[in-house]
Design a protein around this nucleic acid. Structure first.
Lengths: 225, 225
DNA sequence: TTTAGATATTAGGCATGTCTAAAAAATAAT
DNA sequence: ATTATTTTTTAGACATGCCTAATATCTAAA
């Protein structure tokens, strides 16, 4: 089975498949219509229609009323879209000086550009980056992902050190907050203190700045040790 | 009248408007349905439908059975799309090492990406280029075009010199031919001889290479003296 | 000036992708 | 185990944008 046998998806089908892939990654056995409609910000009825189509194209397994599973072909296609999205994010941040909380929307459009050679050349031009500006891994052309071992910041012990490698919640407001306090991707941190009762912690960033973080923030930061 | 008052166009409407703009530039009084259907490679019936819509959005003046004229608003929008197209072409050639006959298709997709800041940053990143890889001028944000005075190669006299600044026919096969013989944009040429009866000519490229060109080729090359 | 041929428009259909409202199925609660 | 609630699907509508076939209009020729 090569690339050639994969079905061609519309712009919209690509977006659904990407959403289903991300929801699948969250560990659930199957992804529900409502989950997808939440992610896509549209109505469940629209989702049902689309699931039938995606099922016909064999990129998901669809049993009515029981949610969907993504197939191997579906994964490959989703990873191709994710690869494009993340490469464009690197381009926007590294070359066009976008800040990392500005890139989502634009990358969501750019990821649908169809040329294969474009992505190969872009990848080369960017120096074959392995991670995007949020620290998420960039799949290779064949969908392979080399992910770094990483833990939620909340799991790091007092006096433990590491590097921020990713964030779970990449909403613009969260990213702006991190930028403001200096907790960028790649920052070296050391856990100075953990407060049991509210889950907040105190960390040292880059050996110079001490900051306090609430439980909500702590749960959304991933560390590589 | 600022940008804010211009209507928002769909992907498809942008393509029609670009086609109508280009056809308008060819000097004709009004642009016919058939002309547009030829340019868009679709059926006249589809064009009629679209002309009604574009008329309602006030980007063209549409009189049934008498073709269309582009309005000032229409021109602005078309020039915005053309600006984006040509900036992306510069990017593809200068940064991603595409050859100038490979860029059309990809740029036709990229030109529809909606972010204004993206185009501003791209423009800056490319060093505010004034001409695309085919030698065509890149409009500024407000649609102003600084075009170089230029003549068809056929009009240059024997012993006349100049620089190739553009090509009229930018089909991939024509561009490949030019690349092959070394007649790239920016090449300095001198007309050595003109053959009356078949319109062919002999030119010296970059003071080192002599090439013969048929009438068809000569008519499609533009020179700045 | 009437007609033949070219050109353009409408009518009706189809595919995509969305919606609301109603019906069906699954799940939770008594 | 039956009912109530939530979830999901279907039915029918609408917008975009394309098509073919039929009709209308214009233009050039006799």
């Amino acid at each position: 089975m090569t690339d050639n046998s994969l079905p061609i998806l519309t712009y919209s089908e690509e977006n659904y498949l990407k959403a289903i892939f991300h929801l699948s990654e969250e560990g659930k056995k199957s992804v529900s219509t409502n989950d997808i409609s939440g992610e896509m910000k549209n109505r469940p009825a629209s989702v049902s229609d689309m699931l039938r189509k995606l099922g016909e194209k064999k990129v998901i397994e669809y049993r009515k009323y029981y949610g969907v599973h993504i197939t191997e072909d579906g994964k490959k296609l989703a990873l191709q879209t994710i690869r494009k999205h993340r490469l464009w994010e690197v381009f926007l941040v590294e070359k066009l000086n976008f800040s990392w909380d500005e890139v989502h929307e634009v990358a969501d459009e750019l990821e649908h550009i169809k040329s294969r050679i474009l992505i190969q050349r872009l990848d080369e031009y960017l120096g074959f980056p392995k991670f995007d500006p949020h620290g998420d891994p960039i799949p290779d052309e064949y969908g392979d992902v080399r992910s770094r071992p990483r833990l939620p910041l909340s799991e790091i012990e007092v006096n433990g050190t590491g590097q921020i490698v990713a964030v779970k919640d990449s909403s613009a407001s969260f990213l702006r907050y991190l930028d403001k306090v200096g907790a960028y991707i790649g920052a070296r941190i050391k856990v100075l203190d953990k407060v049991e009762f509210d889950g907040s912690i105190e960390i040292l960033v880059d050996n110079k700045k001490t900051i306090f973080m609430s439980k909500d923030v702590v749960n959304n930061i991933l560390i590589m040790q």
